[in-house]
Write a protein that binds this DNA or RNA. Structure first.
Length: 835
RNA sequence: GGGCGCUUAGCUCAGUCUGGUCAGAGCACCACGCUUACACCGUGGGGGUCGCUGGUUCGAGCCCAGCAGCGCCCACCA
């Protein structure tokens, strides 16, 4: 307590780093791998990119998980082990890009270094900078298992990834195929649909090109016509009915194109005739496959026209467009040019325009995996919160498409695939014999992420960690990676562990900038959580983020952070008051106090515990944290601590105060771990760290309806008195509502003395609603009574009017009508009493 | 084009599932107060026809329909 006496403020910057050290040293985060998953509690962190720095999304995500993990650690049987699995993701493209930038600044490039040296550089880079984000999680107070950190490129993890690849290949679920992929010229790699940003409002020139007298097509990409293999019209379009089945000659090239009918074609658009370019357009690719059309590539991975482009070979795409248009113009085939505003795909990673190309890639068949993953959600083995998100999950899985899993990068899990001539070998060990060459591609980063909940625990080995902690309990994630990651974890978890990887998925909000825009570095709208922590403390940031979280997207609210800071400070000062009142040698005892205000706060505390438990179970972190705030402010500090001021600190009061403080700290700790830990250390009779303490079960017998009713009445009376004093400006006066205060008389008198300076023993009991002290003149007293009478009469009139409504009496539930009658009677009695 | 969601105090949001005691919170604002925890404080106060229009009901912020505005997701017409 000496430690708190002189500190009137909670100073997070001084306190928090020291407490982090204490937690780390005590290894509160590191459980023994014992017991069963049913007894234990585990969460796998969504692995942050090694390149990453803690952003607001991580801070919210981490605050939620730490709240759950700390709550779990403090609940349940003493044998419960709680593990928050920690690790980072190698993040293929992001990391490779980062290191390539570094090389560029050194005047070299990955191509100059060669693959082996480049990968070595990435490892080196990761060793130097890769740990930063983990340190930042510590600063947030996150109790992940820092003593068991994983990386998606650990040797064991690599083995797990390869095993999955090989087995899926052997089961026919992984295959190689020509496919139209989203080629990102920026990274020189295929990227997934999910990494493509559809940018709206792009202006291009739309050309109408005459292929023949009857056929005019429209396109914004004339250069791709060199790869046309058909022209399509709508089956019901009379204009072209005669032509379907015939051919048209492709200008500049001379190839005969079949004219086909497909209801994909919109007959309202342009001329109703659509050029089909399976090699360079996703829709055309689908139509081409459907009709068995040839697939021609005239654009190469280097962004230049290929040999197939004939005389245009070697030109860049832009040059080719000009040249093709010029050539068409020369033949008089350009019917019109117009501006066309449309949506164009860009790479999320490099920002470059996507070039759809046909290339040989590796794919995963998803339907056989999707089916069980759908069933798991439908039958409740996996519960997605909020419910609305599960509809998105289901919809996505029902419309699942093959997953292109190969990437043309150097940093990542290289495919366990070798070729020799026409032979292909797939296996975890390199093939025997001469002349084999390994496939240079690596796997999509999400492939390894999909194994995260079990590969981190040592799968495929039967490890103690796996036996103790898999399946995990909850997955906490943001909405944007529900498909990219969550669904795939469920699919591969079910496939390889025969179990769901987690029981609950909590999908939290995305925090937007205060003005409603995305928080992003490039927009300059980002807010650095670490700066907020430095300024306001980690407790404040955690509280603020939890309080603003919801199932909707929310705007960042600096006020909520400040509210959290205020709460931390309030707790600190409440503890000071309690500890100064108690004295150093007092002990906590069983909480069975006699004084009404003691019984009240003990009762309220039980309610607060019940509420908090329910809100944790519902993943309602906003109500959890705001409910905590309301308890600490609205009940503990505003009323209880005020009511006990002036009371003699006997054993009963001391015992109650210590009980209340201890329970409050246990309750608040998952939200504001630092300040509660700091106070805990100053409390008499506490051993060890609060982070390792256990909360007592809710004790229903401590609920005290009588005390709650009495204190509620007292609160109303005090409020009325205060308002009246403010209103009238009367100062040195004691005003009390004396009737019905048998139990709280003493408390009220004490409060009156302290708050309003009433002399000892001067509490008047005149039986009315308000009783003024002698110095209030009769006229004033009468005026006050008049006001009160008018208020009561108005309420009585309202109640009478309702009861006079036949519809109400006849149709409202009996209880509602009865309550209204009781209310009326009570009001009338009050009016009577007032005289 | 399909789907989801939002519109409540100056601002950010609860409350809508389960219609009646629900018109709330924090911040901001105004007034008062250095009362032996806290001025990162306390007390009191002002402020909203709950987007609009209709409907259901004895009764609607809450249920239904339509309209207006905003946001997100999915798929994208060359």
């Amino acid at each position: 307590m000496a430690g708190l006496q002189d500190r009137t403020r909670f100073e997070p910057a001084e306190v928090e780093p020291r407490i982090v050290e204490a937690w780390l040293e005590a290894k509160v985060h590191h459980p023994e791998p014992k017991g069963t998953p049913a007894e234990n509690f585990s969460i796998a962190i969504p692995p942050p990119n090694v390149t990453g720095a803690l952003h607001m999304g991580h801070a919210l995500n981490g605050s939620i998980q730490d709240c759950l993990v700390r709550w779990a650690r403090m609940s349940g049987p003493p044998t419960r082990r709680v593990k928050w699995i920690l690790g980072t993701d190698h993040a293929g493209i992001a990391t490779q890009t980062q290191v390539e930038k570094l090389l560029l600044s050194e005047g070299t490039s990955r191509h100059e270094l060669g693959r082996e040296a480049f990968v070595e550089r990435v490892w080196e880079w990761r060793g130097r900078y890769g740990g930063e984000i983990v340190e930042q999680y510590k600063r947030l107070g996150a109790t992940c298992d820092y003593d068991d950190e994983r990386f998606t490129m650990d040797p064991l993890y690599i083995a797990a990834v390869q095993k999955v690849f090989v087995e899926l290949y052997e089961q026919g679920l992984i295959y190689r195929d020509n496919y139209l992929v989203n080629w990102d010229p920026g990274s020189g790699s295929a990227i997934s649909d999910l990494e493509v940003e559809q940018r709206e409002g792009v202006r291009d020139t739309l050309f109408e090109i005459r292929y023949s007298d009857e056929i005019v097509v429209a396109t914004v990409r004339p250069e791709t016509m060199l790869a046309d293999t058909a022209v399509a019209v709508h089956p019901g379009d009379e204009r072209y009915a005669d032509l379907v089945g015939s051919t048209v000659t492709l200008p500049l090239v001379g190839r005969e194109l079949p004219i086909i009918a497909d209801d994909y074609v919109d007959r309202e658009f342009g001329t109703g005739a659509l050029k089909i370019t399976p090699g360079h357009d996703p829709n055309d690719f689908e139509i081409g496959r459907k009709h068995g059309l040839p697939e021609i590539s005239v654009i190469g991975e280097d962004g230049r026209m290929t040999e197939a482009a004939g005389r245009f070979a070697g030109l860049t795409v832009d040059e080719a467009r000009e040249a093709v248009v010029a050539a068409l113009d020369a033949e008089g085939r350009i019917v019109s040019r117009s501006e066309h505003v449309h949506t164009v795909p860009f790479s999320h990673r490099s920002g470059q325009r996507i070039e759809p190309l046909i290339s040989l890639q590796w794919f995963m068949r998803m339907e056989p995996l999707a089916e069980p993953a759908l069933a798991a959600v439908r039958d409740g083995r996996v519960r997605i919160h909020p419910e609305s998100q599960s509809r998105r999950y289901v919809h996505w899985l029902e419309n699942i498409r093959p997953w292109c899993i190969s990437r043309q990068l150097w940093w990542g899990h290289q495919l366990p695939v070798w070729y020799r001539g026409d032979e292909t070998y797939v296996g975890q060990e390199p093939p025997q014999g001469e002349g084999w060459e390994r496939d240079p591609d690596v796997l999509d980063t999400w492939f390894s992420s999909a194994l995260w909940p079990f590969a981190t625990l040592g799968w495929p080995e039967d490890t103690p960690e796996l036996r103790a902690f898999y399946p995990t309990d909850v997955l906490v994630t943001a909405r944007d990676i529900l498909f990219l990651w969550v669904a795939r974890m469920v699919m591969l978890g079910l496939r390889f562990t025969e179990d769901v990887p987690f029981q609950d998925v909590y999908v939290h909000s995305v925090i937007q900038a205060p003005d409603g825009r995305r928080m992003s570095k490039s927009l300059g709208t980002g807010i650095d959580p670490l700066e907020e922590i430095d300024r306001h403390g980690a407790d404040a940031v955690r509280f603020g983020l939890l309080a603003m979280s919801s199932t909707q997207d929310v705007r960042f609210s600096a006020e909520k952070i400040r509210q959290g800071q205020a709460l931390a400070n309030k707790l600190f000062n409440a503890a000071r008051l309690i500890l100064m009142t108690v004295g150093p040698d007092e002990q906590e005892a069983a909480p069975r106090p006699r004084a009404v205000e003691d019984r009240w706060i003990v009762s309220r505390l039980q309610s607060a515990k019940v509420d908090a438990g329910r809100r944790i179970a519902q993943f309602d972190f906003a109500k959890l944290s705001l409910g905590l705030y309301d308890f600490v402010y609205g009940e503990l500090c505003d009323w209880y601590l005020e009511l006990i001021k002036g009371r003699e600190a006997d054993a009963e009061l001391s015992a109650t105060l210590l009980h209340v403080l201890r329970e409050t700290l246990l309750l608040a700790h998952p939200v504001t771990p630092f300040v509660t830990e700091e106070i805990w250390a100053e409390m008499p009779g506490t051993d060890g760290l609060l982070a390792q303490a256990r909360r007592a079960e809710v004790d229903g017998s401590l609920h005290d309806a009588e005390a709650e009713a009495q204190i509620t009445e007292l609160i109303e009376a005090v409020r009325a008195i205060r308002a009246w004093r403010e209103e009238t400006g009367v100062r040195d006066v004691l005003v009390a509502r004396a009737d019905g205060f048998a139990g709280t008389r003493e408390a009220l008198a004490r409060m009156a003395r302290l708050e309003w300076g009433a002399p000892e023993g001067d509490l008047l009991d005149l039986g009315g609603i308000f009783v003024a002290a002698p110095e209030i003149d009769a006229a004033e007293r009468e005026r006050k009574r008049g006001e009160e009478r008018a208020r009561l009469q108005a309420e009585i009139d309202r109640a009478q009017a309702r009861l006079a409504n036949e519809g109400f009496v006849a149709k409202a539930p009996e209880a509602v009508v009865a309550a209204e009658r009781e209310k009326l009677a009570a009001l009338q009695a009050q009016l009577e009493e007032l005289g």
